[in-house]
Amino acid sequence: MPTEDGPRMGLRERKKQRTRDALSQAAVLLIVERGWGGVTEEDIAAAADVSVRTFRNYFSGKAEAVAARHVDRVRRIAGELRARPAAEPLWEAAGNAVRGQFAPEHDIDRSAHERHRADGIRLMLNEPALQGELAKAHAAAEAELTAAIGERTGTDPVGDLYPKLAAAALGATLSAVITHCLQAEPPLPLGQVLDEALDRLTSGLPVP
């Protein structure tokens, strides 16, 4: 029987995650709108309605706040992948998990229909000050996917190649889709390109 501490801890963790999400989203939206140099930690905290001290409890700076959005999204994908029906083929389950995090109403997809917003996202992602945090974020995200795929396929995330290969392929697919959509003239709807990319991935990398 669960103790009172369990539900309370769960509530605290959910509240912390909501604060983290709000800060990360505020960082992305402000930087896209104003440019990297036009946004401070104080701006991000104010937009999320928290103190600067709270911001610094979650992130070392605005680069980490931006990169966290990718890690958190992939963690949700990994969690959804674990929750999909066991009988569902891996790549069908992965596709469904990914689509749930890249729905048409997602801010990146909305901005893809607006030239200035697409330009802002591209400039943000190419910001040199962000590159180190993005590299760490990609590594953390790939580790999450590797673990989830290992569980799903009964393979060892450490000792077997397959979950690493599958996670790397899925992560690279997501990155390629976002880049392709933002660089197209005019920017392409992310959902449509994502469906095409996932279909191609599914047909070319079967479960061993």
Score class of each variant (00 low, 15 high):
L11G: 07
L11W: 06
R12H: 10
R12M: 13
R12K: 14
R12C: 12
E13T: 02
R14V: 01
K16V: 05
Q17F: 00
Q17W: 04
R18A: 09
R18F: 01
T19L: 08
R20E: 04
D21P: 03
L23S: 02
S24L: 00
Q25T: 14
A26H: 09
A27F: 01
A27H: 03
V28R: 05
L30G: 07
L30F: 06
I31C: 14
E33W: 01
V39K: 14
T40Y: 04
T40L: 07
T40M: 10
E41Y: 03
E41M: 10
E41K: 01
E42P: 00
D43F: 09
D43G: 11
I44R: 03
A45C: 09
A45P: 10
A45Y: 08
A46K: 12
A47M: 05
A48W: 03
D49H: 08
V50I: 08
V50W: 02
S51C: 08
V52K: 14
F55V: 00
N57V: 02
N57Y: 11
F59G: 03
S60D: 10
G61W: 01
A63Q: 05
E64H: 05
A67Y: 00
A68S: 10
A68F: 01
R69E: 12
R69A: 15
H70L: 11
V71H: 06
D72Y: 05
R75H: 14
R76K: 11
G79N: 11
L81F: 05
L81P: 00
R82I: 03
A83Y: 01
A83Q: 11
A83P: 00
R84P: 02
P85L: 05
P85Y: 00
P85A: 07
A86E: 12
A87T: 14
P89E: 08
P89M: 14
L90R: 07
L90M: 01
E92I: 11
A93G: 09
A93T: 04
A94H: 06
N96S: 14
V98S: 07
R99P: 01
G100M: 12
F102Y: 15
A103G: 05
A103I: 06
P104Q: 04
H106D: 14
I108Y: 14
I108G: 10
I108K: 05
D109F: 02
R110T: 05
S111T: 06
S111A: 15
S111N: 08
A112M: 15
E114P: 05
E114N: 08
H116W: 11
R117Q: 15
R117L: 15
A118M: 12
A118E: 12
D119N: 12
G120P: 10
I121L: 15
I121M: 15
L125W: 14
L125T: 08
L125V: 13
L125N: 10
N126C: 13
N126S: 15
P128G: 04
P128F: 01
P128A: 09
A129C: 01
L130W: 03
L130F: 09
E133G: 02
E133T: 06
E133L: 04
L134C: 11
A135S: 07
K136C: 10
A137Q: 07
H138P: 02
A139G: 08
A140F: 02
A140R: 13
A140G: 15
E142T: 14
E144Y: 00
L145Y: 07
T146K: 07
I149Y: 04
G150D: 04
